[in-house]
Amino acid sequence: MIAEIADWVGTALPILLLFPLVWLVGGFLLESIDPRDPRDEPPRTAANALGDAAAWLFVMGLCSYMVVGEWQAQDRSWFWLGLLSLALIEALFKLVSLLREARRLAAQGAPEPRM
C-alpha cells in the first residue's frame, strides 16, 4: 500500500506543479480576451451561484465515476488516476466555495445605507 501511495505521489508530482500553472495562465489569458463589459452584467445572485454549484456537482460526479473506474481497472494508470483525483479535488473545492457564496448572497439582501 505504501509503495502504491509513493508511486502515486511520484506520478502526480509533475501534475501537482503543472496544474496551478495552467490554471493561472489560462485564467489570465481568458480574462484578457474576454470582450464583455462587467458593468453590463447584472449583479450576481444566490440563484446564479447555485446554478454554478450544480454544474460543478455534475463535474464532481463525473470525475468520481472515472476515478473509481480507473482504480478498478486491471491496468490502472497512475498518471490518469492522479490527474482525475486532482480534478475531483478542484471540483469539490469549487462546489464548497459556490455553496458558501450562495449562502452569503442569500443572507445579505439589499445593502444598508452608509453614514
Binding site: 462587467p38 458593468r39 453590463d40 452584467e41 447584472p42 449583479p43 445605507p113
Partner: peptide, 21 residues
C-alpha cells in the same frame, strides 16, 4: 439626509457598484 423612497417618481438608473441597475 435619510433620503426616503419617493413612490411617485420613476426609478433612477445607477452603476455605482460597477453594475447598471
Amino acid at each position: 439626509d435619510l433620503q426616503p423612497d419617493d413612490p411617485d417618481a420613476p426609478p433612477v438608473e445607477c452603476s455605482h457598484d460597477g453594475h447598471k441597475h
